[in-house]
Amino acid sequence: MKKTLLLSVLSAALPFLGAGCAGTGAHYVQTGDQHNIVSLGQINIQDYIQAANDMTGKLLASGALDRVANPPAVLAISRIVNNTGQQIDTDLLTKKIRVSVLESGKALTTTTLGLGGSAEDPMAKGLQQENEFKNDVKTTRTPDFTLSGKIIELTARASNTRQTTYSFQLSLTDTKSGLAVWEGEKEITKQGTRSSVGF
């Protein structure tokens, strides 16, 4: 009798418990919040956001971008080395930094100068060259700084527990001196036996 009563109470409580958590059906979640999936073996979107957020904050706080003769500074994106075991698009990190830096008003990013002479926006580069030829004036502003970096993956395992550390490293180099005027590193470590939802 008691067992039946207990089962009835539990059965009634289950839907309420389930209602409080995310369901299994497809639904929208806010990117980067505590309801996002946390994977052990790969970099999640919240990791990119956290790394970009942390390093942008430190970069802006350092005042390194303010030390130019003609503000705002011009920034060019150099090589971001992917030393992880997965294929990633480094723009997931650099674009967020670029957006934040641009919004801060501290620097502008060039899209006509890229690594190895390639332009991110070839059309803009073509038009710029055309304007320079027509007006016989050089308008291209040499970048004050370049941003380079590396993403490193470090894994460890003890019994069924896996741990992955992602190290996001960035260097801001003054193009006149060739010296790194700011460097940032953000490490994110995830541990568990399987991927899950939430932090």
């Binding site: 980067g32 505590q34 919240q46 957020n53 942008t56 967020k96 008003g105």
Partner: peptide, 26 residues
């Protein structure tokens, strides 16, 4: 801005710790 990202963190028993952030724009 990106600064509104949710960050997961831990704090040990009876520990006092600081969390800080820099504003995204002046």
């Amino acid at each position: 801005s990106l600064s509104t990202a949710v960050i997961g963190s831990t704090i040990e028993g009876k520990e006092s710790r600081f969390i800080s952030a820099v504003a995204p724009t002046p």
